[in-house]
Computed example of a mutant assay.
Amino acid sequence: MADAYFTKIHRYLLELGFAVHHQDPATNILVVSRPELGIEHLVLGCGEPLLILEQHLLDLPGPSCEVYQRLLQKNRDIIHGAFVLDDSGRKVIFRDTLQLEYLDLPELEAVFNSLALLLSEFSDELIAFSKA
Rank of each mutant, 00 (worst) to 15 (best):
V32K: 04
V20K: 03
S64H: 12
E101W: 03
E125N: 09
L13K: 01
P63K: 15
S123K: 09
L108P: 00
F129V: 02
G17P: 08
Y102H: 05
F18T: 15
F129K: 11
L115S: 01
I29N: 09
Q99G: 10
L100S: 03
K91Y: 02
A4N: 12
D59P: 08
G17Y: 09
L98C: 06
L103H: 02
H41G: 11
L58T: 08
L108Y: 00
H56D: 13
Q69R: 15
F122T: 07
N28A: 14
A82N: 11
S33I: 15
H56T: 09
D24N: 14
H56R: 09
I9P: 01
S88I: 02
R95L: 05
D104S: 07
L14G: 06
V32I: 15
L13T: 14
L98H: 06
Q73D: 03
L119H: 02
A82T: 12
L50P: 04
C65N: 14
R11D: 12
D86P: 08
H21K: 04
Y5G: 04
I39Q: 00
D124C: 05
L60G: 03
Q69G: 13
V92W: 03
L42M: 07
G89P: 11
E125C: 10
S123P: 11
E109R: 07
E125S: 11
L119Y: 06
Q55M: 08
V20H: 02
E40H: 14
L30G: 01
G62I: 01
A110Y: 13
G89A: 11
F112C: 06
S130H: 11
N113F: 14
Q73L: 04
D59V: 09
L44M: 05
E15Q: 14
D96S: 12
I52E: 15
V67G: 08
D86Q: 07
F83R: 00
A2H: 07
E121Y: 14
F6D: 01
I127G: 05
V32P: 07
V92G: 02
V92Y: 01
P49S: 13
F112M: 07
L118D: 00
V111F: 14
V31H: 05
Y5W: 07
E48D: 13
R70Q: 12
P61D: 11
Q55A: 03
S64V: 05
V31N: 01
E66Q: 08
V32A: 06
A19K: 13
E125V: 10
F83V: 00
I29R: 13
I127S: 12
T7Y: 10
R70Y: 09
Q99W: 08
G17A: 11
L57V: 05
H10K: 13
L115I: 02
A4Y: 07
Q55W: 05
A110F: 12
A82D: 05
S120N: 00
